[in-house]
Design a protein around this nucleic acid. Structure first.
Lengths: 351, 351
DNA sequence: GAAGATAGCTTAAACGTTTAAACAACCAAA
DNA sequence: TTTGGTTGTTTAAACGTTTAAGCTATCTTC
């Protein structure tokens, strides 16, 4: 690669000091009282030599990189890549760029990603935290490093965050299923202690209780993240390939769980919504193309991404005197909408 | 945010020079003849003070950032986010991180992204180039800036690249359709001069010619990128809501085109594969969940990502003397596989 | 025509690293 | 006892910026 032209090259070319060049190219000619002809000459040669400022040097000097680190479970998951796109656009509007990393729901990977990004001096982080990462995050908080949690959160951690009202969304979904006449409702969730997932489970349980629907060991089943395909296949086998206590409806806690579940349901040629009602969290093209389009709980990736960046920008760009302690934190809870489509039958089955 | 500890802080704390600390923490104690006890003390205090090297400072000094810039059309498109994930993992193995940007198939956006990434001193770029970006890329080549094109390429540009054999993939797809008895084959492509798309179109035309199947103005229709939904809807209306010359099969040139097309096909309750055979490029969860799983041309995102990074690493990590002119370029053409499923009927219709 | 202001520019330090070169102290060999 | 080598450490410059402070003419003003 050819050597890049620096401010020094421009200065040498014109026989002036680098300071002068810097002032002009940063439009500080007024305060620095640079002569108008000089300013013009500098601008001209900068263009002529195709000068591009070295942002690394600038960052070293300013202590700011105008870079945001984004850590999600998996950037190839559409839920996260959609959020990534929104964050990219919002960041770009504020002249920031985004570095990303995938944690694979793994605490160690998360730690090393956070570390790598901090070494790279990102100004802030946006994190969809994995299980058992409270300590890492609490360390960030201690050092007053700016960050926002998305999608997930921790009860023990007072941090900026954007998420949906998981409990209520789940609760409403169950109520909706019950209203349509389903009684043997089963939830498929992830086996994790992450509170957002716990909330979804609790919302399910609370609704079931209020509906006085019986709960048994198969009412709420959990899959691992790593072996989701095998786990969901097994769960579906145990739940569907039996006559007694066969569920008449499913609530899937994420799009990946639903996609794996739907594959099993398809295999068995089970008729949705008559034999089985279905609701899932998140969105997916697959939900649209399932022979019976899925009713789902829409988490607006648009809003999540925008709010996350907004919180950071408020924190990063505001004058120090406006943040008395610097310890205030913002939590946004987005009201997730139930989008009703064909996967829950319209009326009660037997009247 | 609290002030970070620097090498200077460690040096001061121990009453030694920063050079010593630097040598030790870079494991150059042997060459620099640092005393073993001193080395131990330095390492200990570095750990104790939780020292994290400032990679920005290191980059300024070394001229390398160990960062790769990734420019795709849209990071939220699963094809690109899958590639992004592979690139992330491969880069990480080599101790690189990835900054990304979405060009939206827009040449100006592409130019400003390239510029922004170069100002940030990325060591190399991986680009899925938009239309009319030859000049930008040719400038990169002129300056000997390392980059690899993925998915797309330009005839007039001698650059590193990884892509599939678009012509042949398309050609084979049409032959496959014909073999199953379809004769009124129609291709839906993007309206662009990008050669990879042109190749797909030419492969289609060549196969049709060899098959002696008649071509007319509706045989090959094109949609814009910006208004894909409206365009595909219109095309489908014109092709399907008519009796005369109605196509009996479609070849979609990308997953987005297919997804939009399938929605229209679904609306009209057209029976696949009997009334209509379908093949699409790329992959999608939607293809699996369409009532009749789609036959598709699989572009291995795994291979594309891996090869792209491999090419860059070869170029970036090799000693200068190994690249005599530095002008050699590597092109990888991956053989895309046709994955046959239910969306093309098994036998000829009327025998 | 002296004092002070102003315009136009330069100097120099700083940001946190890396690393070649210099230096001081010691030791061994002649 | 000089010479030369080795060991352990420091000095200082460099990477490309930014920016406060300094300097020198020239211009006002009385």
């Amino acid at each position: 690669m050819e050597k890049k032209v620096s401010i020094k090259d421009i200065a040498k070319h014109l026989g002036v000091s680098t300071a002068l060049v810097s002032y002009v190219l940063n439009n500080k000619e007024k305060q620095a009282r640079v002569g108008p002809e000089m300013a013009e000459r500098i601008r001209a040669t900068a263009k002529e030599m195709n000068y591009q400022p070295n942002l690394i040097a600038r960052s070293l000097q300013s202590g700011k990189t105008r870079t945001i680190g984004l850590i999600v479970a998996d950037i190839s998951n559409p839920f996260f890549s959609n959020i990534a796109r929104v964050i990219e656009d919002e960041a770009s509007l504020n002249n920031y760029t985004v570095i990303f990393g995938s944690s694979d729901e793994n605490a160690e990977k998360s730690a090393s990603l956070i570390n790598a990004l901090i070494k790279r001096q990102v100004d802030a982080l946006i994190i969809a935290p994995a299980e058992n990462t409270e300590e890492q995050l609490s360390l960030l908080s201690q050092r007053k490093f700016p960050y926002v949690l998305i999608d997930r959160y921790f009860n023990t951690l007072d941090a900026n965050g954007v998420r949906i009202n998981n409990f209520l969304a789940s609760y409403k979904a169950v109520k909706h299923l019950a209203k349509q006449g389903y009684t043997k409702i089963c939830m498929i969730a992830y086996q994790t202690k992450l509170p957002h997932m716990e909330d979804r489970k609790q919302g399910f349980l609370k609704a079931m209780e209020e509906l006085q629907l019986p709960l048994h060991e198969n009412s709420l089943r959990e899959s691992s993240y790593e072996a989701i395909q095998e786990d969901v296949a097994l769960i579906m086998h145990q739940l569907l390939d039996t006559k007694k206590e066969r569920p008449d409806s499913f609530l899937f806690a994420t799009n990946s769980l639903a996609i794996n579940g739907l594959k099993e349901i398809n295999k068995r040629k089970i008729v949705v919504p008559d034999e089985l009602g279905i609701i899932s969290f998140d969105e997916s093209d697959a939900f649209d193309f399932f022979y019976c389009p899925l009713t789902y709980i829409n988490q607006s990736t648009e809003r999540i991404g925008k709010e996350a960046v907004r919180i950071l920008m408020n924190q990063l760009e505001k004058k120090p005197e406006h943040s008395p302690t610097g310890l205030d934190t913002t939590q946004i809870v987005i009201d997730a909408q139930l989008v009703t489509r064909a996967s829950c039958r319209e009326k009660k089955k037997k009247e």
